[in-house]
Design a protein around this nucleic acid. Structure first.
Lengths: 242, 242
DNA sequence: CAATTCATATAACACCGCTATAGGTGCTAC
DNA sequence: GTAGCACCTATAGCGGTGTTATATGAATTG
């Protein structure tokens, strides 16, 4: 009756569910939509997955293992702190690539039925941090550090997902990343005043001076001089704009 | 037929919805439960709120305004950075006090239909940060700082909600809070650089920028511009002559 | 007192997740 | 070959959900 070249109904269900979840903009996806898209009737869904939640758990598990595989295959550079940055960015990117999947994974957490993958992500992050710890770069226990970083990472990703793609400002991610990492690990590799990729201290100092000048205008410069001075200051402060 | 001492059906619906949402452990609450608990039939719900989502929006808005009121009524100590800490902790506490409400507010965010209260929270945080900025404690723009802090704050709160109340470790909150705040504002307690009236440390900021420029020359200014810029900076730094 | 507007109720629709039951399929055993 | 036997799928339907067309009552207004 049916062509046998097609994949098994189980995988068809999985793919249909994943596709519909990705397309349908956050609105719930019905089992009838899924079964219809998979050319299958309801009982086969419940035979294979027992539950609607079971199906979505499977979808999420698949997407999550894809994410974890990508994480594990990232090249482990010699510098653990640099690895930390890389994994942070990878996490954010995964969230932006699969927003609805991500929301199911990390957004809809219910207290008692906590998704196991969050724990997995935490464990993996902890691995990376253990490496940082053995390199004597860590300032707190890897467990605490992992939780703190992951919490901030999730928060940033959720916030980025929540706003329209056009207005997304990845600066938020980089900034928070540097904040959390620097509080947890000493990035003693480079001199802080030279170029770390985050926010060089020139920019920091310029912004501070800019803010200071808002409430107190120095009398050492004429108004025309001050105008030009502020303009240059602004230029220095907004290095990120490029 | 009914006692009239009771509040109007509209508020009864609101209270019933809020109560059921707080009790029912994350599972969805049906309109029938709500209307039955409010001793009301379905059409009155839709007459007053138009939608189930409209009802929950109202519930959320009420809870949120309660939260915002609490925030605004927090005493504004003289030290803006300390205020920042206080508001962070208050945010976390609100999430732990009303976990399901909080999840509806910040967890289930859908990209297109972003809850307005998130924006409100951001705006309020920005207010606090503007105060910190005028006190020259800020190192980035208040807007960016507010987004970064709020993102981390939400992430931490979600993570704390997601785990059993017994195992909750508020250290995670404090640690991440300090990380994000210290990355965004300088917490100089003694504050020897500001005058009593609040004129911030123009001189110190200028000196800092001057020092930073010694090791890293920005490419936003031409060499001739930079020469003049440094000269002016020098002049500002040596205010003593006035 | 009549008319209009607001607020609530009756009854029903279309859809949802889910399942009791039954019917096919392919396999091994005789 | 065919009987038995797991396995997988389909038919049809149950109870529950969000929602609404329609109607009724209460209150306000002319």
């Amino acid at each position: 009756m049916k062509k046998v070249g097609e994949p098994t109904p189980k995988t068809r269900l999985l793919r249909a569910a994943a596709a519909l979840l990705a397309e349908s903009n956050g609105e719930p996806v019905s089992t009838r939509q899924i079964t219809q898209a998979a050319h299958v009737t309801a009982p086969t869904l419940y035979h294979h997955f027992g539950d609607k939640e079971g199906l979505f758990d499977a979808v999420v598990a698949e997407g999550f293992s894809e994410y974890l595989d990508a994480e594990r295959n990232l090249p482990a550079s010699g510098r653990p702190v640099e690895d930390l940055r890389m994994h942070w960015d990878n996490h954010v990117q995964f969230g932006l690539d699969h927003p609805h999947l991500y929301l199911v994974m990390f957004g809809n957490i219910r207290p008692e039925r906590r998704p196991s993958m969050v724990a997995s992500a935490e464990a993996f992050l902890e691995e990376v941090l253990v490496r940082a710890a053995t390199a004597a770069r860590l300032v707190v226990t890897p467990h605490e550090a992992a939780r703190s970083i992951l919490a901030a990472n999730i928060g940033v990703t959720l916030m980025l997902i929540a706003e329209p793609a056009a207005k997304r400002n990845l600066e938020l991610s980089a900034m928070t990343r540097e904040a959390v990492i620097s509080a947890v690990a000493t990035d003693s590799e480079a001199d802080p005043t030279t170029d770390t990729e985050g926010t060089p201290s020139v920019v920091v100092a310029a912004i501070a001076l800019n803010a200071a000048l808002q409430s107190s205008h120095p009398d050492q410069l004429s108004s025309s001089e001050l105008k030009l001075f502020l303009e240059w200051l602004q230029r220095i402060s907004s290095r990120s704009g490029s």
